[in-house]
Amino acid sequence: MKPVRRSKVVSMEEAASVVKDGMMVSIGGNHSHEAPSAFCRELVRRGVKNLTLVPSNAAGYQVDVLIGAGCVGSLYNSYCGLDYIGAAPNYRRFSESGRLKVVEFDEMGLMRGLKASAAGVAFFPLPDGFLGVDVWRANPEFYKVIADPFTGKKVVVMPPIRPQVCIIHVPQCDMYGNAIEPGVFDDILHQAADHVIVTTDEIVPVEYIQAHHTEVTLIGKFVDAIVKVPYGAHPGQCSGRYTHDEDHMKEYQLAGKDDASFAKFLEKYVHGKTNEQYLEAVGLSRLLKLKYY
């Protein structure tokens, strides 16, 4: 009997059921681009509470939507915003009203905490000069100032950061989780978590990956579940497929101005809807306009 290699492809519901209240969850993406936005909307539907979110160095919609839906207890924040469109409305509103605990990071500290976890080392130093950056004063729990054992100079170090679940979106991967994507942070995220979920616009045959194996950025061995979600990065961009939906992002930003209007937004686009129904609510004509070039 010939053994069959296991496919990791599962349904959205099955993949999302792993995420429980109070968990530490990392979320990929670059600004609002190539982010697992459809998966985040599923977490909103499921009403998950009190998550500790560990986004990539620059987060946008994918994180803000979870904050606005009341899913987030604390946020390891390097950046949260909507790029040139302006502030991430829920992030700003919830932190200014004290409803969101923001744990202060910069992108190097966050990166190196995840690297420490991926590499299994006790801590990771930051370069000389970091004492001039106020982040270590605002987050002394993570940024520790110690004496360099070799020179005696002060050095800022970062402990391992280990999310329980990691969620990443890619344009394409095979059924074993090998993925090709140009993201700059997702590679470290997928190496630094206990359970990795990849959502993808397309599942390609393993032969495609084999023909492009030097371009693979996520190694399937680290991946636990794959969910196929067409337009899964909307309203962000997905490399080579569609660009971001500026009109929707502006509608989103406006809706985040207060609780009542954001609740209406979630009713219109998220609650009680499958991904297909979400895309219908956005509209086919809009989706067809999101040309990459």
Binding site: S78, A87, A88, G98, E104, D106, E107, M108, V133, V135
Partner: peptide, 17 residues
Amino acid sequence: KQPKFRGPGTVGTMATA
């Protein structure tokens, strides 16, 4: 813990060091 104004975050600006 409850800023008067919350900007996006330090992100990569620490590199000016």
